[in-house]
Every structure is written in structure tokens, then in C-alpha cells.
Amino acid sequence: MLKLWKQTILAPVIAALLFMVVFGLSLGNSISEINGFEYRVYIVPGLIAMAMAQAAYSNNSSTIFQARNDRYLDDILSAPMPAWQVHLGYLIGGAMRSLLIGVVLTAFALPITGAPLVHPAEALLAVLLLTTAFGALGIIVGVYAQSWDNQSFINNIVILPLIFLGGVFYSVSRLGSPWEQISHLNPLFYVVDATRHGFLGSSDVNPVISLSIVAVITIGLVSWSQYLFSTGHRLKP
């Protein structure tokens, strides 16, 4: 599983750390505090969430697509494993890499930026939910994808913009009406906001609300990917 660790673990960790250094440490001096936090501290939780979300998504979408495309998925489908077990296996596989990235990133980012970890259990819950949700999304896209391009398309056109507009780099409450309200329609805003509350103890909306919304999204996506395995829809002609 960790054979490709340079691509799947090291690359996203370095990318996120670069964001922290470039935006945080250089830009941070010219940007005033946000909600009482230095800028370089403020962006840390969102960047960790973003790196983990993308890792879970891209690992699973490429794993499933590859297995379908090269047809070695057949070796799994013909084996005596119920659909939920296969599904769970893929979810855990993606989550392991994503969580490893989260741990490594947190271990580097907190000392470098001085960001706190105020509610560790809450932060863990937030990242577990987001990892599961994005892992399931990866499975769904991997199942529906017709080509390799489909997956990066979804990543570049849907996930990345929504994360960026979800308040990784700014507090959406500073946007003012109507952009603040529009931002609240973005599901990824709640992912970022819940993670931020776990780390910094401060957020735009009540963490109970954001965690609940993230949980509902997670349940929805997991049910969808489970449905794909249960019915064999698109996995078996």
C-alpha cells in the first residue's frame, strides 16, 4: 500500500507545507490577524483538511479506476466477499493514506507556525468525517469515470475551487453579504470550518452545526458508494 509513498504521501505533504510557508510566512506579515489569529496560524487547519481531502479522493478514484480499467477488480468481485466488505476495504485504504498525511502534516505544521490543537478529539472527528466523505466521493468518481482525465477534471473543476472558496485562506464572515451567505451553501465551507474549530477553537459557525452538516454529507456519499458496490452498477456489465 505504501509502495508509492513518494507520490501519495510525500508530494501532498510538501505541497501543503509550501502553501503554509509561501502564504503564511511571507504574506502573513502584511495581513492583519483573522479572528484573533495570526494569518500563518489561521490557514493551517484548512490546508491540512484540503491535503487530506484530496488525498482520500484521488487515492480512491485512481485505485478504483485502475482496478476497473485493468479488470483486476474481477479478482475481487468473484471472491467470496460481501459488497460492504469490499467497499469498507477501499474506504479504509484511502483513509489510511489520508490520515498518515494529516499526522505528518500536523507534526510539521504546528511547530513551524505555532498553531495550537485546542480540541484534539473534535479535530480528529472532523478529519475522520472528511476523509470518509472524500474517500467515498473518490470511489464514486472512480466507478463512473470513463477515462483518467475525468478524475482530475472533477478534482480541478469541483473540489479544488470549492475548497478554496470554502475559507481555507480567509474567514467567509469577512466577505459580507451576499458572499458570506453564498459561501454557506458550499458544503466544503463546513468541512474547513469544523476542522478549524478543532485546531484553533474558533470558527465562523457553531461546530455542532458544521460537524452535523459534514456528517450528513458523509452519510450521503457513503450510501451512494455502497449502493454502487451492492448493485454492481457500472462495476459489472
Binding site: A67, D70, R71, D74, D75, S78, P80
Partner: peptide, 17 residues
């Protein structure tokens, strides 16, 4: 599950990870 456990299949096209 029982049926699947009792069958071994080598497909027409090699399908290896």
C-alpha cells in the same frame, strides 16, 4: 458466497494488478 468460494477462474484477458 458459497458458490464464489467453490469457483476458481482464469479469465480470457490477463487481469493483473
Amino acid at each position: 458466497m458459497m458458490a464464489r468460494r467453490m469457483i476458481g477462474i482464469a479469465e480470457q484477458e490477463p487481469n493483473l494488478d
